[in-house]
Write a protein that binds this DNA or RNA. Structure first.
Lengths: 250, 250
DNA sequence: GCAATAGTGTCTCTTAGACAGTATGAG
DNA sequence: CTCATACTGTCTAAGAGACACTATTGC
């Protein structure tokens, strides 16, 4: 914020120009597994590789608005269903050599979506799919998207601890078991059903009862479950902490 | 990531160009109060207003490297002392109208520094000061820096809960009381000395004993305090949670 | 009937926090 | 001496997690 800016006011070419993109790590749960929205690149560089949905931020749109637009384009979603998707900024990635063509700073976002239909092919011809995150290791991802995804997944795991955002993976009404399945899927390990149940109901504002129950019991038997919807809490207190593993702490 | 990019590979003028700056919310503790590094702008827009230190990211530097460079320029720091400063990315701010001259996306960073000398006037002629954060309300800040500072302060308060970064506000060796003063200053309310003491020592890897003590007791009497240095933990487990206030949760 | 599930009760261990108490050392 | 401070002991309440148990449903 010095002379350079002053000059820039009169000569827009005097500042170092950078391309800014928005990318989205969009997560959903399908068939009991965590899935990630990816597109297959149709052009070089990284032609044929998988990449995060994203694109250049437009002149008149905010960063988060750009991310929401990109998500809408790739999923074919709109209106109410898109509004149920949680979207937050994840971080910016701007290593000078991350794109071989030019200096690109990517503002990555993180999205939590309820189970969505298969992506409609967007305005562009790139193939888009929901890919299980367990299948990621064998894929060659474009740019530094592998790292962005890693940080997005860790953010997601962490967010489930202290926010009620797990409900964003579910329909408007859900059972405690379905909510538990979200935690188990995102955290990757089983939880104790009874303790989880009591814990969720004890956190103020996490869920509120609808007064109704499911029409049927579980697929393999069991009583009908009560239905809940998301409560008004924005933070969980006390939080639902993952069991701490020593290796993550040091 | 579509045709536009493909074109851009051949015509660097085809993508929407944006200026990218790095700004730094640099915090330190002086005289028992939390201080923030600000510079006074010498040019329009917002001439005479206070602003965060920052500037354009250079073509061959990473975002965080740019933030560290800006911090070094404004504080006159270098070498070992700069390396003791904690620096992390806070978030990016890119509302289309945040800078009246052109589209600017700012990648904000958050820095925790031990008590530093008064800023040397940097390469530019802008005045730089450490301002107590309590004095911020009466100041007109440039751009959206007021919001960036708010989010930086909240991030700082939150980070003290689950990371050992409070030690970054202190010298390499410190007493438990000094550490408690950091928490009290950043969180803005007093803590129980005895319980804090026991809690800090019980968290694995938070602090480790140096085996030495201070030369003198406190200014108003009392025994000499043992000295500690930062331990090897990167996360505190269990965390030191702020007492939850209902209004922050809803 | 059998097996799986929803939901509740109870016990133990850990932790947070309130409070008290002792030793030390500056003024 | 006085008093603030460093540090420790003890008690209580809350919460996490293990385990057990009942009731309900699909097959």
């Amino acid at each position: 914020m010095n002379e350079q800016e002053f000059l820039a006011a009169y000569d827009p070419g005097a500042y170092p120009s950078v391309a800014v993109t928005v990318d989205v790590v969009a997560l959903t749960i399908r068939d009991g597994a965590l899935h990630l929205l990816l597109i297959q690149r149709g052009q070089p560089p990284f032609e044929g590789h998988w990449a995060l949905p994203g694109g250049f931020v437009r002149p008149d749109e905010d960063l988060t608005a750009g991310a929401r637009r990109e998500l809408a384009e790739e999923t074919g979603l709109g209106g109410v269903r898109l509004r149920r998707v949680h979207l937050e900024q994840l971080g910016s990635y701007g290593a000078p050599d991350r794109d071989p063509r030019m200096r690109v700073v990517s503002v990555a976002h993180l999205a939590f979506a309820p189970d969505l239909p298969d992506p409609a092919a967007g305005t562009d011809a790139d193939a888009a799919i929901w890919l299980p995150v367990t299948a990621l290791t064998s894929r060659q991802l474009a740019f530094d998207h592998s790292r962005i995804i890693d940080e997005g997944l860790e953010r997601a795991r962490s967010k489930l601890e202290y926010t009620p955002l797990a409900t964003r993976f579910l329909a408007a009404e859900f059972t405690i078991s379905e909510l538990r399945a979200v935690y188990e899927t995102v955290w990757g390990h089983p939880l104790h059903a009874g303790n989880f149940h009591r814990k969720v109901l004890s956190v103020p504002g996490f869920v509120e009862s609808t007064g109704t129950s499911t029409e049927r019991g579980g697929a393999r038997g069991g009583p009908r479950a009560r239905l809940y919807r998301a409560g008004d809490a924005r933070l969980l207190h006390p939080a639902l902490l993952r069991p701490a593993r020593e290796e993550t702490v040091r």
